[in-house]
């Protein structure tokens, strides 16, 4: 589904990604781990089309289509969703209005008929109940005054409503207590099936107890330096990034060739 080859990206002229190769198939969950400043967040933002970054080399294909040629809104309509590490507050725009506009903008771009307000509202109510969100969040301005956990739940609400092929979750676990983490994971796991794929960016392995990955990648200095099975995350928690960073993965679990 997602094919990244030799991806280089920089911000204000300084390179952050220095040659990422990554293939994610339908139905898979990939975790990206790594020390601070390795470029984990950059990777998901570049894939989602953030105007902050400049791609200097490489290619990214989504189901064979050139993702890098698309505007951010086109990527969203094509099925790419990024859950923000720091969801943006949008005063004056009600959550329900925002979701309605987003759902229908994507449908329009894809050439599908728009959904009625009633349909969208019904879906929203259902998703909010599932995510244990108070109905009052429907009419509140997007993320304004939400706690950290409420913002992340709101991201997952958008995820469920937009139902993307590929979800990039950027440090979704940061700042979450255990209850919020459980609910967020429940939302993500409800979408897991042979058609959906996930790239979960995280600093800690804790999230991966809830969203169990098929593959774990270690990102260091803008490159994926090691890939392994789910057990790699546990190994990393025990041993840290030091050895892998120094180029010596030792007995770290690795993917079988």
């Amino acid at each position: 589904m997602l094919e990244i080859k030799n991806l280089h990206a920089s911000v204000n002229g300084s390179p952050i990604l220095r040659g990422i190769d990554l293939t994610v198939n339908k139905g898979e969950v990939h975790a990206i781990m790594g020390p601070n400043g390795a470029g984990k967040s950059t990777l998901s933002k570049v894939l989602a089309g953030s105007p902050e970054y400049e791609v200097t080399e490489g290619s990214v294909k989504l189901d064979g289509e050139d993702l890098l040629e698309m505007e951010a809104e086109e990527r969203a309509a094509a099925g790419v969703f990024m859950g923000f590490q720091y969801p943006i507050e949008v005063p004056g725009v009600a959550n329900s209005y925002f979701l309605r506009k987003a759902v229908n903008a994507q449908r329009k771009t894809r050439g599908e008929p728009e959904a009625s307000s009633v349909e969208i509202l019904r879906a929203m109510k259902k998703a909010m109940a599932f995510l244990e969100m108070d109905a009052g969040f429907r009419n509140r301005p997007v993320n304004v005054g939400f706690s950290g956990g409420e913002k992340k739940r709101n991201e997952i609400l958008q995820l469920l409503m937009l139902n993307p092929k590929l979800a990039l979750l950027d440090e979704t676990d940061s700042g979450l207590d255990i209850d919020a983490l459980r609910v967020v994971a429940k939302g993500v796991n409800s979408l897991r099936d042979p058609e959906h794929a996930f790239v979960v960016v995280t600093h800690y392995q804790r999230l991966l107890d809830y969203i169990v990955p098929d593959v774990v990648h270690v990102l260091v200095d803008g490159r994926i330096v090691h890939s392994g099975p789910r057990e790699l995350a546990l190994w990393l928690e025990e041993h840290g990034y030091g050895a892998i960073k120094a180029g010596d993965a030792g007995d770290a679990p690795r993917l079988e060739a």
Partner: peptide, 29 residues
Amino acid sequence: DQNQLWYLRARGIPKAKAEKILTHAFVAD
């Protein structure tokens, strides 16, 4: 606000429409 604009676009709302929504929101209060 460029961050707000990016957020709306990342959810699939085209740039021109997103600018419109944010401008309305600015005076709506």
